[in-house]
């Protein structure tokens, strides 16, 4: 017997199932993936440079086993090649030097005397490379080791790669006090749409009092961490359609015990951001930087401070 209701209800059921299971809709964004595709985050230290000085084998480790432009945290181990034992009782100095095509030498902010870190068993320090290695610019590490008997030195060619993570960008500028300054971002490597602890190293070049006759003379390549400055922060999105968008609850960077400058930056969404800075010295004088307008100006790219670093995540 023909039962019309079966046909009707089967049709309806089919229609519901068809639409409910057809997948013409948009997938949800994988948020973790969204944050990491733009910026790989490196957490592992791997050997970037190795060399031997006399009886000592030296291994220098950096994140991802690569030295990049900008700030590099350095771990160095010294091994006595005859005993194959790591040593911790020697003084280690590190001097990065760049030679350009016309044989001029220069360097970047760095820690010359490395500290031995008892807890972790390595010498630690940092180097800020203002430029990468290329045909015209040739970087070398000059390493000195002083044990109870003597001071040994050696040099090693190194390769400085371009830092592709804009969150670790740096900037170099001449302050109003005519000193040469360097600001290099240290953290966060991989920012989130959140409150991010913003860490930067701020350094200045100490011009030598005398010209030198010996090479390499660390006095000619001397940098120091600036003390008790304040780095005022105003993060904004430069994209014209974002109309000079900013975020609330940011904190200016001030120096902490590790000599680095710490503050807070809030990123409200992913994309391009400009960190507008004003650097103020210990006496409250502006070294560099200008206030940026706070107006919301849709369609117009926001004005930048004369001191800024662009980031992207």
């Amino acid at each position: 017997m023909f039962k019309p209701h079966y046909v009707v209800f089967s049709c309806l059921l089919f229609v519901i199932l068809y639409f409910a299971t057809s997948s013409c809709t948009i997938d949800k964004t994988d948020y973790e993936d969204e944050l990491t595709t733009e910026i790989p985050e490196y957490i592992d230290y791997e050997e970037a440079v190795k060399l031997s000085i006399g009886n000592y084998n030296i291994s220098i480790q950096a994140l991802n086993g690569t030295l990049y432009t900008g700030y590099n945290d350095i771990r160095l181990t010294v091994t006595n090649s005859s005993t194959n034992q790591e040593v911790s009782d020697v003084d280690v100095t590190l001097l990065p030097i760049k030679t350009n095509a016309i044989n001029e030498t220069s360097s970047g902010p760095h820690q010359y005397h490395l500290n031995y870190n008892n807890e972790n068993g390595y010498y630690s320090g940092y180097v800020v490379f203002p430029n990468k290695s290329d045909v015209a610019n040739h970087w070398q590490f000059y390493i000195g080791i002083t044990d109870v008997y003597e001071t040994l030195t050696a040099s090693q060619d190194i390769n400085v790669a371009e830092q592709s993570n804009k969150n670790l960008n740096m900037t170099t500028f001449l302050g109003h006090d005519n000193d040469m300054y360097y600001i290099a971002l240290v953290a966060p490597q991989s920012p989130k749409i959140a409150e991010n602890k913003l860490v930067a190293g701020i350094y200045k070049y100490n011009p030598p009092a005398n010209t030198s006759t010996t090479f390499p003379d660390p006095e000619q390549f001397s940098y120091s961490e600036v003390e008790n400055y304040t780095l005022k922060l105003d993060p904004r999105m430069p994209e014209p359609s974002m109309g000079n968008h900013s975020s609330p609850n940011n904190k200016d960077l001030i120096q902490e015990e590790d000599k680095l400058y710490h503050g807070v930056v809030n990123y409200t969404m992913t994309g391009n951001w400009t960190l507008n800075f004003i650097l103020i010295n210990q006496n409250g004088k502006i070294v560099k930087g200008t206030e940026v307008p706070t107006d919301f100006t849709p369609g117009i790219e926001g004005a930048k401070s004369e001191l800024f670093i662009d980031i992207l995540f």
Partner: peptide, 14 residues
Amino acid sequence: MYPQDYSETTMFAY
């Protein structure tokens, strides 16, 4: 949000 220059990174938030 899509920037005016579509080659630039998009801007995302929840």
